[in-house]
């Protein structure tokens, strides 16, 4: 790390540029030529207290998606128009070449943050896309300031809440990926499996029951409900009811359970659906098992019958982030889901 002091915004940009030029100009340092690894610009915004964790995140990400990384915060202790900057690089040998990527840290004073997009615009690698992540404790004003530069926005609705995410979504045309949505993949996959051979039953759902552990600042059920409602063509009427694609009433029921080891607060513990197919009732459930909370019992009764146990598995956050960056096929689906979730949440 090379501290470069603080100053006006344009001076900070110049300092960072000079440092980057000095680093990448191998001849001036008399060292071996360096190759730049650049698959993207990754801009992560977070609270100053989260900087160490965000540095670790960048480090892990760079091992598989190397590029230029920016770590940005608003520092209330800085004079309003000041920017603190810091440039560092990581190099390693790849065969006979030295391959490097760089990281730029910028701490903005409260007013200077408005200029963040212009700063990033001056410093990004122009040939590759810019991914913006609203990290833990990210000041929303800084995220909003940077959104115009982003080709993709990554959020965590478990932290921001679905209503805030949907507000951000209305302000940008960039695709949004949500860590919380990625984390629910196993649940969504197992719910989808209920209907793989009973597709017509998706139109006839009359009851949704979601159980989750309490104590988290955001309701994890919201996103699942939003996804179900948007995919199944339901119209939400209130927190407790909706109308399904066939025009019948859907009862929405939420169950709170106390967190218990190893489950923390805000975890889904079970999903139950009631529906119909060929005039016969179909009851669907997928619930964590008491004897092993990382395993679920997936069960169908009525018109279709079957039961299996499946391990939910564990997904590291570095994997979740990679999916948010790479898995673009669900972008449109997510946008619809989060809007429906915000609609439900606001009732």
């Amino acid at each position: 790390m090379t501290p470069t002091g603080s100053g006006a915004v344009s001076e900070a940009v110049s300092r960072v540029e000079a440092e980057l030029n000095a680093f990448w100009s191998a001849a001036s340092q008399g060292s071996e030529p360096k190759a730049r690894a650049s698959t993207m610009n990754f801009v992560v915004v977070g609270a100053p207290t989260e900087k160490d964790a965000l540095r670790d995140e960048i480090e892990t990400l760079s091992a598989t998606r190397a590029g230029r990384a920016f770590l940005m915060t608003i520092d209330a202790h800085l004079p309003p128009w000041d920017v603190d900057s810091d440039v560092s690089a990581v190099c390693h040998k790849e065969g006979e070449s030295v391959v490097c990527y760089d990281r730029i840290e910028l701490d903005f004073g409260a007013m200077a943050a408005q200029r963040a997009a212009s700063v990033v615009g001056a410093l990004v690698l122009s040939e590759v896309p810019t991914i913006l992540e609203a990290g833990a404790g990210a000041p929303v004003s800084l995220v909003e300031a940077l959104m115009s530069r982003a080709d993709r926005l990554i959020v965590d609705s478990a932290d921001l809440g679905v209503r805030k995410v949907s507000e951000l979504g209305r302000k940008t045309t960039a695709p949004i990926a949500d860590r919380a949505f990625v984390r629910t993949f196993s649940w969504r996959d197992m719910v989808a499996r209920f209907f793989d051979d009973a597709v017509m039953a998706t139109r006839a759902v009359t009851r949704i029951r979601i159980a989750r552990t309490s104590g988290w600042k955001q309701d994890p059920a919201a996103l699942l409900l939003g996804w179900l409602a948007s995919r199944l063509g339901m119209k939400i009427e209130s927190k407790e009811s909706a109308i399904n694609a066939n025009g019948d009433k859907v009862t929405i029921e939420l169950v709170s359970e106390d967190p218990k080891e190893p489950l923390g607060p805000g975890e889904i513990t079970g999903i139950h659906l009631s529906t119909w197919i060929d005039g016969v009732a179909l009851e669907l459930s997928c619930s964590r098992m008491d004897e092993d909370l990382h395993t679920v019992c997936w069960k169908r009764e009525g018109a279709r019958v079957g039961a299996h146990h499946h391990a939910l598995g564990f997904r590291e956050e570095s994997w979740v982030l990679l999916k948010c960056i790479d898995a673009t096929e669900g972008d449109g689906i997510y946008r619809e889901a989060v809007l429906a979730a915000a609609d439900w949440s606001g009732r």
Binding site: R188, W276, V280, G330
Partner: peptide
Amino acid sequence: MSTETAASAPSGAAPINSTIPPNPLREGMP
């Protein structure tokens, strides 16, 4: 966890059509 079975089939419980549409819940899934 208990499940509740409705007493009568609502309007969506018509016999399935011979053309099976794709599962909407699979849309957008990797």
